[in-house]
Design a protein around this nucleic acid. Structure first.
Lengths: 198, 198
DNA sequence: GGGTTAGTACAACGTTCGTTGTACTTTGAG
DNA sequence: CTCAAAGTACAACGAACGTTGTACTAACCC
């Protein structure tokens, strides 16, 4: 087994366990077992549980952000019909890459645990993840506005509104029948472009 | 000290501690101290930690939902100018009633912990809280649509979109400089009504 | 091939926590 | 006032957990 891969193994196992159980519930022994690693190497790499957690959220955020930036790049550069292109973008955006499900569960853990995470770590995490993606979308929207495709004052806020509208949000991470993705995105994009005024 | 108030004391203390620390971190002894109650009476009332948690989220959800339903009632019945009335509603909606800050922190805990809470409890919580409020807003929106004030196919989805747009959402529960509430609501309502199409 | 480096297995520690039992005290209704 | 119901103080338990030290083994570089 290659030595340098152990670190990645630990990060992957810790992501799984932290995302599922949260910081407090997650036990070092379970993480080590999930990663196929002894607890001692885990401590040798990351110092303690808090250090491991911060490394995990940072790594997961940058990895997912990179994937999302690629989707922005590939879907929001050449525009033929804005509405259908936004729908295609939204669907690509929200299509659940299976490995990323754990990331979103981890995001919920971070949201809940924010008061127990050092501020530096939260800031770095936001910068590497959500804020970077939000800025990328905002840049594209600003370009669309310059071309007269959109009418907006604050591109960052517009990007936030777009992300919210296609998120569908509520409690869908529970089992149950998941709402139709295409429906959620199509109606979200429609609301984003045209609003509900009568 | 009135006997029947002990139960409410426990619920209030448990809300504070669960909201701040999360289920796993929260300890029974700390909750009992916060409530000014012995651990034994806590167990006598709620059985065990899980039972207490479910009672707390249910009570908090119904209490906040009642307050929100009152705001819907008082702001969305008589409409003079839809946009300004929606702004006023959004501001009243989002104005942080101080006691309710703990509730929203608890919501984040529930979102993170959903996999470790029995499905019945989650369902009951959703029904007593978010879904009831969402339906109330949807009913008002449907009435507005009947009057030609709004143009929509699915009132429930429109209510969700409205709630998302005025939520401002991102990580504002952290300290730092909180974004201007009036700004967030005004722009959110504008996007909700008119969209961003150029 | 030898030696440094990284990884493992394992025991041990101190602490924290949920939970229960028990004997005692307070409270409130009749 | 009386007495049953509710609350308290306190000790005790078993289990789980984070963390460290240590002696041993496997992997890699020259």
């Amino acid at each position: 087994m290659a030595r340098s891969s152990k670190r990645q193994d630990v990060l992957a196992g810790a992501l799984t366990v932290f995302a599922r159980d949260g910081y407090a519930r997650a036990s070092i022994d379970v993480i080590a077992a999930e990663a196929g690693v002894s607890t001692r190497t885990l401590y040798n790499h990351f110092g303690d549980k808090a250090g491991l957690f911060q490394a995990v959220i940072q790594e997961s955020a940058t990895r997912v952000a990179a994937a999302q930036l690629a989707i922005v790049e590939s879907h929001l550069t050449e525009i033929t019909d804005l509405e259908s292109d936004l729908v295609a973008f939204g669907i690509a955006w929200r299509t659940p890459i299976p490995d990323f499900a754990e990331h979103w569960a981890l995001v919920r853990q971070v949201n809940a645990e924010a008061g127990h995470i050092p501020e530096d770590a939260i800031d770095a995490w936001q910068e590497a993840g959500p804020l970077a993606v939000q800025r990328a979308i905002a840049d594209r929207f600003a370009a669309f506005a310059a071309d007269g495709l959109l009418r907006l004052d604050d591109p960052v806020r517009a990007a936030l509104h777009f992300a919210l509208l296609i998120s569908g949000s509520n409690l869908s991470y529970r089992g149950g029948p998941k709402p139709d993705l295409a429906d959620t995105v199509t109606t979200g994009v429609h609301a984003f472009l045209h609003g509900y005024a009568g």
